[in-house]
Structures are given as structure tokens and as C-alpha cells.
């Protein structure tokens, strides 16, 4: 291509025409803070993990369960809590491992893959927590109906009145859907803004090798 050769000639000719930055300025630069997307992903991820871990730790069900007078429920939930801690630890380990793997010295495609993988790890963790939240909601609801003496009047009503039961289930279902919908929207927005360019470039790179 003739024009490209022309451009190359010009490119080479002007190679040394840039205003030079002094050593002192470069010294200053390396002590400034990066604003790369990796840094943002790290900040957001740490916040997400903290938030969800805090929620799952603070969500103390012991007192509530004791009130039910069913000792076997307490031990079931102990198992669940231990499992939950295991997941948190495994997740933090995975996230850390993926995060330190991100380095700018690898091929572009690999770098993008590493960033997306790190991002996905957090996403899975959030979905796990959301799933657990919904599961707790359902279990809590079932327990309330089956065991809680305080709600026995309501229970009778639900059991004997199809309408009340339908409304209760409907409201629960709707709450769950709205809950999930809001989260989905939030994530789409947050990471849509942050990762749009990365996704586009990654797709372009993958397309080349198809």
C-alpha cells in the first residue's frame, strides 16, 4: 500500500520530534498513583468481598433458631456456616492468585484473559452470596411456617386459605426477582462502564484467530 509506505516514511522522519520529558519529571511520575482498570477492579472487588463477608458473618441465625426449640436446626446451620467460611477462604485465595497473575509483560490477549478471570472470580462470589441470601430467605420462610410458635396463627391461615398462601408466595417471589434484577442492573452499569473497552478489544483479538 503506497499510502502506508508514505506514512512509514513520515513516521520515521518524525521519530525524534517529540517534546522530551526530563528525568526529574519521570521521577515524579513513577511516584504518582495509577488509574488503570486493574486498580479499579481491585478496589471494587475488595469492597464487594468485605461487604458480602460482613453480611454473611453478621447474619446471625443462632438466636432465632434457639427460639424454635429445635436443637437439630442449630447444628444444621453450624455446618452451613462452616461451609460458608470455607467458601470465603477459598474465594479469597483464588482471587489473590488470579490478581497477582496480572502482569503487563505478557501478550495482550493473555493479559485481557487474566483480568477477565480475576473479575469473574469476584462475580461468582457475589452470585454465590446472592444465591445463599435467597436460599436463607426460603429456608427462613419454611422454618417460620413450620416451627415458629409466634406465627402459628398466620400459618393456620396460610394452610387453610389458598389465597393467602398464593399471595405470600407471590410476594416472596417478586421480592427475589426485584432483588436480583437490581443487582444485575448495578453490575451491568458498573462493569459495563469499566470493562466495555476491554471486552470490545478482547472480542476483536479473538476474532482475528477464528
Amino acid at each position: 500500500m503506497k499510502e502506508l509506505d508514505l506514512l512509514k516514511k513520515d513516521w520515521k522522519k518524525n521519530e525524534n520530534s517529540f517534546e522530551q520529558i526530563s528525568e526529574i519529571e519521570i521521577y515524579k511520575m513513577i511516584h504518582k498513583k495509577s488509574s488503570s482498570i486493574v486498580k479499579w477492579i481491585l478496589i471494587i472487588s475488595v469492597l464487594e468481598v468485605l461487604l458480602w463477608t460482613l453480611i454473611s458473618v453478621c447474619f446471625n441465625t443462632d438466636e432465632y433458631l434457639k427460639k424454635m426449640n429445635h436443637i437439630e436446626l442449630v447444628s444444621y446451620f453450624k455446618v452451613l456456616t462452616i461451609f460458608n467460611y470455607g467458601v470465603i477462604l477459598a474465594f479469597i485465595y483464588l482471587f489473590y492468585k488470579n490478581y497477582i497473575r496480572i502482569t503487563t509483560t505478557v501478550a495482550t490477549k493473555q493479559l485481557m484473559k487474566d483480568i477477565l478471570r480475576t473479575r469473574k472470580t469476584v462475580q461468582y462470589y457475589v452470585w454465590y452470596n446472592l444465591g445463599m441470601a435467597v436460599l436463607s430467605l426460603i429456608i427462613g420462610f419454611v422454618i417460620a411456617i413450620a416451627y415458629n410458635p409466634e406465627t402459628s396463627i398466620l400459618n393456620d391461615q396460610i394452610a387453610h386459605n389458598g389465597k393467602v398462601m398464593a399471595i405470600t408466595i407471590g410476594v416472596l417471589f417478586l421480592t427475589t426477582v426485584v432483588f436480583f434484577g437490581l443487582f444485575w442492573l448495578f453490575y451491568r452499569l458498573l462493569y459495563g462502564i469499566l470493562l466495555r473497552r476491554l471486552y470490545a478489544n478482547y472480542k476483536e483479538l479473538k476474532k482475528i484467530d477464528l
Binding site: 482498570i37 479499579w40 493479559l111 476491554l198 478489544n201
Partner: peptide, 17 residues
């Protein structure tokens, strides 16, 4: 040679306009 790669990766992947 080393700087090429890091610089390009930063421009394409890490940099937020």
C-alpha cells in the same frame, strides 16, 4: 523491546480514557 509490550498493553488494556 520490553517497554514496547508493557506500553502497548497499557494503552490497549489498562488505560482508562
Amino acid at each position: 523491546t520490553w517497554a514496547y509490550r508493557v506500553a502497548l498493553n497499557t494503552a490497549i488494556t489498562l488505560y482508562r480514557k
